[in-house]
Write a protein that binds this DNA or RNA. Structure first.
Lengths: 175, 175
DNA sequence: GGCAAATAGTCGGAAGTCCAAGTAATCTTG
DNA sequence: CAAGATTACTTGGACTTCCGACTATTTGCC
């Protein structure tokens, strides 16, 4: 029994009727929350036959792009922008499924590397194809809407401090 | 130590370099996930002095717009688009804090109503003002970017079956 | 060198979400 | 009107995420 009206549009009307302010922002923020829920459901459903969920897929993808197929857990957390404990949990699962292995860092004994296994590389390749097939859950959005959303969220993420504002110069580190 | 580059843009380059496909969709989907995380952090931090989190605020706001300040739990779940179990949990918390009370439905004994208390109404009004002050966490996005995001996500939500495609006619039920 | 500070990862606990299943009440239908 | 289907809500369990605290190791500085 889906609703016969858009509940967020209805909320916006109530916001305006009660003079609560920032109705446009409320609508967009609530929509992003709901969109996240929809995407996660669609993506996780598509990944379920591969034995993955989105967060585990992201970790595998990141590893598969690295030269050696391995990265320190901390670096994974930085790139995926999740808490260190979440990385521990994610890698625990992947290791239990034989998709990665924990190996000690050659020189820094504090550090643990997650190393992609052959099975892990096969799974992530298949899963990536599956996700491309479903358009990463964005069915219903045009290419223009997708790119506009992406652009708008770049601004949000930059303002939140995810990365600095110097896009062109590739000077990642001091030179 | 924030990254010195946009990790999602980096992921997109890797996607393209490896021919994984749907790089635009991957980027947008990942951005929505990250945006949700940012918004939830900002919003919950702003609500923390009020003793609320976003999901509880949403439930209070919904109740405050109803004629009697009360709604069946099931209707709350429909409007907020969350699982019945989550509604039970949310109302449990609000009830423990004295912001709502569970009261039996006058005619249907299966149904429980959540009834806003005086304290609940006071809190939700204050909290709404706080959230308006912080622009619902969207700091960094222009008005145009906000409205474009909102429009794009309406399409996604409609395609996901959240509501039908007849916006103008207000014919909610059969007539 | 050696001690304080920073860094890397893990554990325990709290919170939120969902699913599956269960209870209770109402509706439907023959 | 009685059995079966449906609806409303709750319970128990699994999962994910975060925070605070902890151990181990490395780095910085006098």
């Amino acid at each position: 029994m889906p609703l016969s009206f858009d509940p967020i549009a209805e909320a916006r009307r109530n916001w305006e009727a009660h003079g609560w302010g920032a109705a446009d922002q409320m609508s967009a923020a609530t929509s992003i929350t709901r969109a996240h829920q929809i995407l996660l459901q669609r993506i996780d459903a598509a990944l379920e036959p591969h034995g993955l969920v989105f967060s585990r897929f992201e970790a595998l993808a990141l590893l598969s792009f690295s030269r050696t197929g391995s990265l320190p857990l901390g670096k994974i957390g930085d790139r995926l922008q999740v808490h260190p404990t979440s990385v521990t949990n994610t890698i625990d699962r992947l290791e239990a499924d034989g998709l990665v292995a924990r190996v000690p860092h050659p020189t820094d004994r504090r550090t643990t590397l997650a190393q992609l296994t052959g099975a892990g590389r096969a799974v992530v390749t298949d899963a990536a194809a599956t996700l491309a097939d479903i358009g990463y859950g964005l069915d219903g959005m045009s290419d223009l809407e997708t790119s506009r959303t992406d652009t708008a969220l770049v601004a949000l993420r930059r303002a939140a401090g995810d990365f600095p504002r110097d896009p062109p110069g590739r000077t990642t580190g001091p030179h």
